[in-house]
């Protein structure tokens, strides 16, 4: 288990209380799970993602991430329509462990309300949650 000081928590993404991250890239928002989340889950062996074109509200479950021990839900950091999913995870779900913010991204959405992204937590605020 990583100590909080060892966690990789980039400044340029926003975080949720459920340990997802979201980041604006051009006119879409890319999302995944944080380094803390992947470290807690352990080896990720399967990621179940929705179809491109489906829409979800903020906080809605959009998929699952499966470790050797358990199946965990994934929740939308913000609402929107799915424009892309990371196909690489089908063959290499371990990318979520090794590279949670780049190779291990999960999907991209067109945000229904851009203000929702701004309302997510900064690194500093997210760290406060992790420190309890």
């Amino acid at each position: 288990m990583k100590a909080i000081s060892e966690l990789n928590l980039p400044e340029d993404v926003r975080y949720t209380d459920d340990h997802e991250w979201a980041k604006k890239i051009g006119d879409v928002v890319r999302m995944g799970i944080s380094d803390y989340a992947q470290d807690q889950l352990g080896d990720i062996v399967f990621v179940e993602l929705p179809e491109v074109g489906s829409s979800f509200d903020k906080g809605e479950e959009f998929g699952t991430v499966e470790s050797v021990k358990a199946v965990s839900e994934l929740y939308m950091p913000i609402g929107g329509e799915v424009t892309a999913i990371n196909d690489a995870l089908a063959d290499a779900p371990e990318l979520v462990n090794s590279d949670p913010y780049d190779g291990g991204w999960m999907m991209e959405i067109k945000a229904s309300d851009p203000a929702e992204l701004e309302a997510l937590k900064s690194k500093a605020d997210y760290l406060d949650i992790l420190k309890g």
């Binding site: 288990m1 807690q40 352990g42 080896d43 062996v45 470790s67 050797v68 021990k69």
Partner: peptide, 23 residues
Amino acid sequence: GANMADFGGYDMPLWYSSVKDEH
């Protein structure tokens, strides 16, 4: 740096770095 948890009243390692590699 093992991921530790309570098992049967004992503080035990669930895995060290990778459950899959250990298996």
